[in-house]
């Protein structure tokens, strides 16, 4: 998957394009997140606007990222989930572990 980074204040936004299912997808995702953690960027917002599918392995990587940032007292949040993914986050109850927002400005405000 393709991931590009942009900054809004002290929040790092990762715009993700593609699926999170193949080993290469997972490496791309983990690589991008770890690069931000290495620079001590602990407020991460994942933009799922162009993400189509997340399988169980992808979900595992996402949970792992959330745990890593949580261990450093940081925050991982997601925005723009497609209906299928929103349903996945609901029944896995990940919404209780990871902040999920419908709009980017709303998500950015939540970091303050």
């Amino acid at each position: 998957m393709k991931i590009t980074m942009r900054v809004a204040g002290d929040v790092t936004i990762l715009d993700m394009i593609g699926n999170m299912k193949s080993p290469a997808d997972l490496e791309d995702f983990s690589g991008a997140v770890n690069a931000e953690l290495d620079q001590n960027h602990l407020k991460l917002l994942l933009n799922f606007k162009d993400v189509g599918f997340v399988n169980s392995s992808g979900l595992g990587r996402l949970v792992l990222a959330a745990k890593k940032i949580g261990d450093k007292s940081g925050h991982l949040k997601v925005v723009n989930l497609a209906p299928d993914l929103d349903e996945l986050f609901t029944f896995t109850r990940l919404k209780e572990k990871i902040g999920v927002f419908k709009a980017e400005d709303e998500a950015l405000r939540s970091f303050q």
């Binding site: 979900l59 595992g60 949970v63 745990k67 609901t90 029944f91 896995t92 109850r93 990940l94 209780e96 572990k97």
Partner: peptide, 10 residues
């Protein structure tokens, strides 16, 4: 209704 999250993570 779901009443628990992923098992073995947290």
């Amino acid at each position: 209704q779901t009443n628990g999250s992923l098992v073995g993570v947290f």
